[in-house]
Simulated assay, not measured.
Amino acid sequence: MIATLGALAWLFAVVCFGAIIPVVPTGAAVSSGAALAFHEHHPVTIALVIAAGAAGAYAGDLVMYAMCRFGGEQLARRLRWLRDEEHLASVKERLKAHEIQVLLVSRLIPGGRVPVLLAAAFAGLSWRTFVSANLPACALWSVVYAAIGVAGGSIFPQPWQGIVAAIALILVVNQAVSWWTKRRSAAAST
């Protein structure tokens, strides 16, 4: 049990750090944890992986949102979070029309969270709205990635095979979404 608590604490830390520094593959961490938990045959451990992943994502998002709110556009430019002014403007418009839905979906779209956090911060979205809308977004995100890990863990007999399958599936889905988004943007600009 102590090893499980230590692993959950590491999962929380990795996901929290990855939410602040968007280079860390946080979805893969949650999927891997769920695949390992599946092989332990403890459904409670899978629920704890989901909770640790969601809590890490939530805490990291709060830090990131605070950095965006207080650091402003200068900090975003310095950290190279702000690259595409047009995209940011369109996200701001969608966010004004559908705050909660945009925050929910942004967590699930690869590369969608940072622009939405920037747009929300620059548009002055209240802390109260952000805090309440981001909680279900992080929980949903963690459930989706844990489900990918459980699926990978259930297909393969060895835990490492499930982890590799989950990571490969995440990479394929991320690339497909990225390709589709670029293609859609190119079609919209013509």
Rank of each mutant, 00 (worst) to 15 (best):
K96D: 15
L75V: 07
S126E: 10
M67V: 12
L117D: 01
V44Y: 01
L108T: 06
V105C: 09
W81D: 00
A97V: 15
A54E: 08
V91E: 03
G112E: 11
R113I: 08
A139E: 10
W141T: 04
P22W: 08
R78T: 14
S142K: 04
V114H: 04
C16N: 05
A147L: 14
E40M: 02
A76H: 04
V24Q: 05
E73H: 04
I109G: 06
V144M: 13
G6R: 11
F38N: 01
T4R: 06
R77M: 13
L62W: 01
S31W: 02
A89V: 08
A137D: 06
Q101N: 05
V102D: 03
I20C: 13
G71K: 11
A35I: 14
I20N: 09
C68L: 11
A133M: 12
G27H: 01
A55Y: 03
A9Y: 05
S132W: 15
G6Y: 15
E93M: 12
A9T: 12
R69F: 01
G53S: 15
F130K: 04
F70T: 10
G112Y: 13
R80N: 08
L95M: 11
A37G: 10
L88R: 11
S142Q: 10
R128M: 10
V44T: 14
A13Y: 08
A97F: 00
T26C: 01
R69K: 12
A89Y: 03
S106V: 11
V143M: 12
G111E: 04
K92G: 06
H41V: 11
P136S: 09
A146C: 07
A139I: 14
Y65Q: 12
H41F: 10
V144Q: 04
E93W: 00
I20H: 08
F12E: 04
P22H: 07
Y58M: 08
L117V: 13
T4I: 10
L104G: 02
V143I: 14
A97S: 12
C16R: 02
E99S: 09
